[in-house]
Structures are given as C-alpha cells and as structure tokens.
C-alpha cells in the first residue's frame, strides 16, 4: 500500500485539503496585521460558498457566481465592521453572533432558494472551477501527481499568498495596515483613519475568505452543504497564528494542519469508525496550538528570568 504512487497521491490530497486553509490563513493575516483577530471568516466563507453556487447555477456563468460570492462575503465583512467599529459592539461578540446568524441564514436561504436544508445538489447545478495541468511539470512522473492537475483555485491560493506578502510589506496600504495594527492612535494622529483601515482590511479578508468558501462548494465539492466549513475558518487562523502572521510561514503551517485533515480523510477508508477519525483535525489543531504556545511561553519566561537572574540568584535571607 505504501508505495511511491500512494505517497504522491496522498501528498496531492494534502494540497487539496490545504487550499482553503491557504485562503483563510491569508484572510485572517491581513486583519491581524491591522491589529484585529477576525473570528468570523467562516461566515464569510459560508456566504460566498452558497451565493456562488446559487448565482452560478442560475446564470450558468462561473464569473457571475464568483462575483456574487465575493459580494456576499464582503457584505458580511461590512456588517461586522459596522457593528464593531461604528456601533462599538465587542468585536469577538460580533463575530460569534455573525457566525450564528450566517450558519442559520445560509441554511434558511438554501431552503428558500433550493428547497433543501442539507444540500443544494438536487436543485441547483452550479458551475465549478476546473483543474489545471501545469505545463512541463505535468509530464514529470510523481511530481506531476503531487503538483499538477489541481483545482485552478489551488494555484490561485498560492498566488494569493505572494500577493498578500507584497500587499503587506511593499505597498502603501500595507504600511498603513501595519501602522494601524501597531498603534491605531498614532496612525490617526498622522491622518490615517484606523476605522477606514479596519474596513479595508476586513474587505480584503472577505475576498480571500470568499475564494476559500467557493473552493469548498465549487471546487473541492460541487454543491453547498449546511455548515460545510466545519471549523476551517478557525483552523486557518490557527495556522496563521502559529506562524506569527508571516505569510510564507503561514503556508507551511497550513500544510501541517492540512496534513492531519488529509490523514483523517485517508483513515475514513479504514475500519475505524468515521466519527472517531473526524475528530483528528480538531484534536491535532488543539495539540499544535498547545505545543507552539508552550514553546513561546517557555522562551519568553526564560528571557524574563534571565533579565532578573541577579535578583533571584542572591542568597535567601
């Protein structure tokens, strides 16, 4: 079973399941650079996933579907921003509320428009993103299995990481986002409106999240399913946090989280009950968070301790 072909196709599946995490980790990265944690990327993904499926189904146009998905996701971002930054509701509370609203809202909308509360499969025949074979690489054995022939959005997601890096570190907007993230009042006194930057970073976030969501419903699967993000928004954010909001490192940590997801998918085929296997991605997320935070804690404690070494090393009185 464990021959080279198998390993290659497994690695390919890792990339397949990591694709939404690439999108989500970049989505949460831009808001964290602005100094905020966006706990509602799942809502944006859900909104985009459903809208994309419905609109592309009705219009039979992938482009319209994608545009509608992005608009839906951006609308969620605007609602969050309005509540959190204009009405001054606690951001976390806002995100939790919006998550619940969208979980119920998408199910509601799915029923209204597709007359089913679980899947859109029967009613809507949406367009989907196709796969892409990379020239040259597609002819190299093994490597082609791993890297080539993925959904087009997989390559978009990798491009998205590069774009995000460029945006954050090379552009004027990126400088402003980092400035606001570090000291919002200082940015304000320089004439950069933090609230505007929050809105912009949430909107950028929503575009990334929208692609993440549409990958799930129009790439990875070809239909919308109730609550289909099942924690991916949070897993992607964890990957970004473990990587300390560094774009390329976030890619690597996303792969780590994707690996456990792919492993779980693989184990579904074995005799172990699927319910037990389904726990794997979540448990491993918790474990990775605990390990990485422990390391960070120990290092900072050690540094503090070293600074106070003379103080502690005196004889007791």
């Amino acid at each position: 079973m464990f021959n080279l072909d198998f390993i290659c196709s497994f690695l390919a599946s890792v990339i397949r399941v990591t694709t939404p995490l690439f999108f989500v980790s970049m989505a949460t990265l831009v808001t964290r650079k602005a100094g905020l944690l966006n706990m509602a990327t799942e809502s944006m993904m859900l909104a985009a996933a459903l809208t994309g499926v419905l609109v592309s189904g009705w219009t039979q146009s992938l482009l319209f579907g994608v545009l509608a998905g992005i608009v839906a996701s951006a609308a969620v971002a605007l609602i969050i921003c309005y509540c959190a930054f204009k009405l001054k509701t606690d951001l976390y509370l806002t995100c939790i509320a919006v998550n619940t609203a969208l979980s119920g809202g998408t199910t509601f909308a799915m029923y209204v428009f597709a007359h089913d509360k679980l899947y859109t499969l029967q009613v809507v025949h949406s367009k989907a993103f196709g796969n892409w074979n990379i020239p040259f690489i597609k002819d190299i054995p093994y490597l082609s299995t791993i890297l080539s022939g993925h959904n087009i959005l997989t390559y978009v997601s990798i491009l998205g990481v590069v774009i995000m890096w460029f945006l954050i570190y090379k552009t004027r907007l990126g400088l402003r986002i980092r400035g606001v993230g570090e000291n919002p009042r200082a940015a304000e006194s320089s004439g950069v409106d933090p609230v505007k930057i929050y809105f912009i970073s949430f909107l950028i976030c929503s575009v990334y999240a929208a692609f993440g969501g549409m990958y799930m419903s129009m790439g990875y699967l070809s239909y919308f399913m109730r609550d289909m993000m099942s924690g991916r928004g949070f897993i992607g954010m964890s990957a970004m946090n473990v990587a300390n909001a560094k774009p390329f490192l976030s890619m690597l940590t996303s792969l780590m989280f994707g690996f456990s997801q792919a492993l779980a998918n693989l184990m579904q085929l074995s005799n172990i009950p699927s319910e037990a296997v389904s726990m794997l991605p979540y448990i491993s997320t918790v474990i990775i968070l605990v390990v990485s935070s422990s390391i960070r804690m120990v290092l900072s404690l050690r540094k503090e301790r070293a600074e106070s070494k003379d103080y502690y090393d005196q004889p007791a009185d």
Binding site: R172, L175, E182, G191
Partner: peptide
C-alpha cells in the same frame, strides 16, 4: 503628543510619511 504617537517597529521615514506616503504605482 506627550505620549509619542509612533510605531516603534517602523523606521523614522515610515513614521514621518505615514498617511502621505510617496508611491510608485501602488508600491511604497
């Protein structure tokens, strides 16, 4: 301000021009 309104991790130039940054296209 009495308490400086600055971003300590950025350079002097970045702090000074923030909000009126010179750009080439979209690049800072």
């Amino acid at each position: 301000h009495q308490h400086f309104m600055q971003m300590p991790s950025l350079t002097v130039a970045e702090n000074v021009v923030l909000g009126m940054e010179p750009v080439r296209g979209v690049i800072f």
